[in-house]
Design a protein around this nucleic acid. Structure first.
Length: 301
DNA sequence: AGGTCTGCTCACCACAGCCT
DNA sequence: AGGCTGTGGTGAGCAGACCT
């Protein structure tokens, strides 16, 4: 579990949903940790009843009426379960191994398999993971007879069944370190600065300051004017960098084709055409994007 | 004075394996 | 299931060299 990335995502989702997002499903190993992070960003007590883990999702209907949910990670069934399935199918594959510098043979990382039926082993593993993720997402909006029963479920894992997600985003791409935050903070306190200005102020090398500024420039969060300073130095100016922490990246997949389905676009505050929405509308606003002719529902599906 | 490139160290993270 | 440990990979941070 990457605490900071989970925190960045949950903080943004809470900004948008407020009290509407207070449940999560993850692995048993990190369930308590995810609950703690959710507790922190929610600034309220998140009880044990508000989280569940893969394995118990088929027997609990607690989240049926929730309007939003968060899934993190996927379960790992282990080698033996996969090998048992292969044996039943009369197929042959073995856990892949690697050799250490000492000449020892160890299990290769990544739950990989070798052998004639390694592809099937990988498919079985993916099937187990994806089925649990799908089952977990299905804990929400369970009143099939109620047209108002719907929920937005954010699935933070790469173990999603093909075609299952309405919309896919690349997730948290970068979280600044303490030094990088200092550089950002320093830049926002002055109208503009060179790499040397910031490096001297923060106490790091100008090269590190330059790399940080380059990264921000690439994301259109900092404006760079080449050679505009003394001695031909590049001059940098904050251009929305104040909100770099928790930046939500551009969505990646194509619109859905069916008119009865709706997709969600998580908009960057600085590129959103509705960035000047009234107070009370979150900077990380989640907007329904219609793919048919009808107006979108109040919330995404 | 500036920017850029390279290579190094170190801390952190993900993962497998082991133990309780 | 949960906790702990060892290991390899990755990226941040930095120094120094080089060129403009």
């Amino acid at each position: 579990m990457n605490d900071e990335r989970v925190r960045a995502v949950l903080a943004r989702l809470r900004e948008h949903h407020g009290d509407g997002l207070e449940t999560a499903i993850t692995t048993a190993q990190v369930e308590r940790a995810v609950r703690t992070v959710l507790d922190d960003v929610a600034s309220e007590e998140i009880g044990e009843e508000n989280t569940m883990h893969y394995g118990e999702e088929k027997s609990r209907n607690d989240f049926a009426d929730e309007r939003a949910g968060y899934l993190y990670g996927c379960m790992d069934p282990g080698d033996e379960m996969i090998l048992d399935v292969l044996a039943v199918l009369d197929l042959d594959a073995v856990p892949a191994t690697a050799t250490t510098d000492d000449g020892d043979t160890v299990r290769e990382k990544g739950r990989t398999f070798d052998g004639e039926d390694a592809d099937t082993a990988r498919a079985v593993l993916a099937s187990v993971r994806e089925n649990h993720v799908a089952q977990a997402a299905g804990r929400y909006a369970r009143n099939a007879d109620d047209p108002d029963s719907r929920a937005t479920v954010y699935v933070h894992t790469d173990a999603v069944p093909a075609g299952y997600a309405d919309y896919q985003v690349s997730g948290v791409e970068w979280l600044p370190t303490d030094t990088q935050r200092e550089i950002i903070d320093e830049l926002t306190t002055r109208p503009n600065a060179t790499t040397r200005d910031l490096a001297d102020a923060v106490g790091c090398t100008k090269e590190h300051a330059r790399e940080t500024l380059q990264r921000l420039t690439d994301r259109d969060l900092v404006e760079r004017r080449e050679g505009a300073g003394e001695h031909g130095a590049d001059v940098y100016q904050a251009d929305g960098v104040e909100d770099v922490v928790g930046e939500v990246v551009e969505t990646t997949n194509d619109p859905l084709c069916n008119p009865n389905r709706w997709s969600l676009a998580i908009c960057d505050l600085h590129t959103s055409p509705n960035a000047d929405t009234p107070a009370g509308t979150s900077s990380s606003d989640v907007k329904g994007r219609a793919t048919g002719d009808d107006p979108p529902p109040d919330r995404g599906g």
